[in-house]
Write a protein that binds this DNA or RNA. Structure first.
Lengths: 249, 249
DNA sequence: CTAGGACCTCACGCGACGTGGGGTTCAAGC
DNA sequence: GCTTGAACCCCACGTCGCGTGAGGTCCTAG
């Protein structure tokens, strides 16, 4: 009588060809996402084809990062799956931007440690505290939302491009400094391409977003000393110089 | 007698201006990362300045994603902090690439759901299964490492650029199809720019990595039917056509 | 009939706390 | 001095998706 369509599997078999563990299948039964529709007389689990299909769905949904609980209700009731996925995407995006920020911090630290050669752990600890304090300062000027947008833009435009732009700042600042040292007038045509590039680099930071631009300016104004010392930022005089150059343009 | 330097704080105060909760401070004591150096006669915790400094370090390290356990040993013994950070960076990178892959999957699904308008949850479920099956196929051709490299390149080059390239494929395929329909010879100069662009787009997928290229070709060969039906991929004839065009070049 | 492999059901562990619950202690107002 | 409410104390379970034994039963081939 056991014809086609009545195929059943025991946990071990199911585990083997789904790549899950037996314990996982037990757990899925405990929380009610995949309950085998039959048992043998002695209590061994028997999964049929419907169970198998359900299991595949569960795995697919789990791989999207959904919780077992939401998967359970999803497969039980008629739930707005599209909405759920949107929420999940939102959630993933947020985690991504947090993780990217973390990676940036970590790689800065590792780079510093590498370039300083055999840096002592205590010095590195001090550096870490410094960085975390910087982050805090940064967070005072840019809202959660703005920081997320910055990460977003970083992703869209590509890490490599951004890195190149960041690397360009010190060079640009040095060249402007040369002109200032030489007593060149801000309206001098030799300054124009420098001032223009300056504006372009700024543009590509804030991307035309006024809020971002204002926050950046405010942070620069209120912390110019620190930024100059630690990161080679421009002096207020240099900024005034560029502004006069742009005004003359 | 309580002069400067003897300032102490109770948990509540500490919690208020570090932004942590009282429970968190209790927990930090339980696991031994920040233990208040004194207690009042009645058992209330008293943190002094040393404790406060230690707490700031703990928070900074925790924000780098380190576990409380490793922070504890780190602050106790002389541990290779730089090495720890390198490991952590590695770990974060791996999580990042996994999360990026997840985001890509999710946004594909959400886009599909949106473009299909009011798609039924059951249809969407079928689609999810399909996508997860596709992922599985994909994983058969590209190793873990290769997939991570693909995500890596995607991040470096920028989402926007990649999206534009992907959007270009169907157009390019249609134009080549037109030439084939018109009976144009592969060596015809009109085909040359098309074939060249074809090669460029391929290049920017594998980025010169032979392993990636070979895997891609193999996947295309062995699944050309499915790829053509579901994603409008090129037919084997078209690929042969482009190859002849390149040979003639 | 026996061995060993597959199955069963508890039940604790993980990590960084959140969240009560039930009981002291502190500081201010009467 | 007494009361009241805020702040403190400790204990202990819950979270999430299983991993990892422990101790026992069942199945199947030799």
């Amino acid at each position: 009588m056991p014809e086609s369509g009545d195929t059943t599997w025991k946990v071990g078999e199911l585990a083997r060809f789904t790549g899950l563990t037996v314990r996982t299948l037990h757990h899925y039964e405990d929380v009610g996402v995949v309950v085998p529709s039959r048992r043998t007389a002695s209590g061994h689990r028997l999964y049929d084809e419907r169970d198998l299909r359900r299991l595949y769905r569960v795995v697919a949904l789990r791989d999207l990062g959904l919780s077992l609980e939401s998967i359970r209700t999803l497969l039980a009731d008629e739930v707005d799956l599209a909405g759920l996925l949107r929420d999940q995407l939102d959630h993933v995006r947020r985690r991504l931007s947090a993780l990217r920020a973390l990676r940036t911090r970590l790689s800065t630290l590792v780079d510093t440690a590498d370039s300083a050669g055999d840096i002592a752990s205590t010095d590195l600890l001090a550096l870490i505290e410094e960085v975390s304090q910087m982050e805090e300062t940064f967070a005072n000027y840019f809202s959660q939302d703005q920081r997320a947008r910055l990460e977003q833009r970083r992703e869209e435009r590509g890490q490599r491009v951004i890195d190149a732009e960041i690397a360009e700042w010190p060079q640009l600042i040095a060249r402007v400094q040369d002109e200032m040292d030489a007593g060149t007038d801000p309206s001098d045509p030799r300054v124009r391409p420098l001032a223009r590039r300056w504006t372009e680099l700024l543009e590509s930071f804030h991307g035309g977003d006024e809020g971002l631009r204002d926050s950046l300016y405010r942070m620069q104004r209120e912390n110019s000393e620190t930024i100059r010392e630690r990161h080679g930022g421009p002096s207020p005089e240099m900024i005034a110089f560029i502004e006069r150059a742009n005004a003359a343009d």
